[in-house]
């Protein structure tokens, strides 16, 4: 059974990314990097585009042209935010698939760290398991 349902995922991701962009150094660093990201999440199916202005979902997201596209399951996203994902393993095993310059993909991962600090409070808020 997937960790998220679609409604929870869109709401949580929206809040988390907005907070990261507006209230942490991530927003400034994302702008400086020039990186924009399209997340194509499966189980549940969520499409989200992120740039320095915040996240967009669904049709609006699909119309954007990102620098990097990342595909993964909702459970993989959850594990990543909980710092429980071995990233080289996830890339090697195709749990994460990315399109876009490899050095940009490698750059995204450390940029996202502020989100990992914020995530546990969202798990409490949305009653998501953290002992996976």
């Amino acid at each position: 059974m997937a960790i998220f349902d679609k409604e929870t995922a869109e709401k949580l991701f929206g809040e988390l990314w907005t907070k990261m962009i507006k209230e942490t150094e991530f927003g400034k660093k994302l702008k400086e990097s020039g990186i924009t990201i399209l997340f194509e999440v499966n189980d549940p199916d969520v499409v989200m585009y992120v740039d320095e202005n915040g996240p967009l979902f669904g049709k609006e997201a699909k119309e954007k042209t990102p620098v990097v596209t990342m595909k993964m399951s909702g459970d993989t996203v959850h594990k990543y935010w909980l710092k429980k994902l071995n990233i080289p393993k996830a890339l090697a095993m195709r749990q994460i698939k990315a399109k876009g310059p490899v050095n940009k993909v490698l750059q995204i991962l450390p940029l996202l760290k502020p989100g990992q600090e914020l995530y546990p409070q969202y798990c409490k808020q949305y009653n998501l398991p953290t002992d996976i």
Partner: peptide, 14 residues
Amino acid sequence: ILLPEFYGGQGMTP
């Protein structure tokens, strides 16, 4: 050349 700009690499395109 192959390393990301974030760490001080050149961040070249392919």
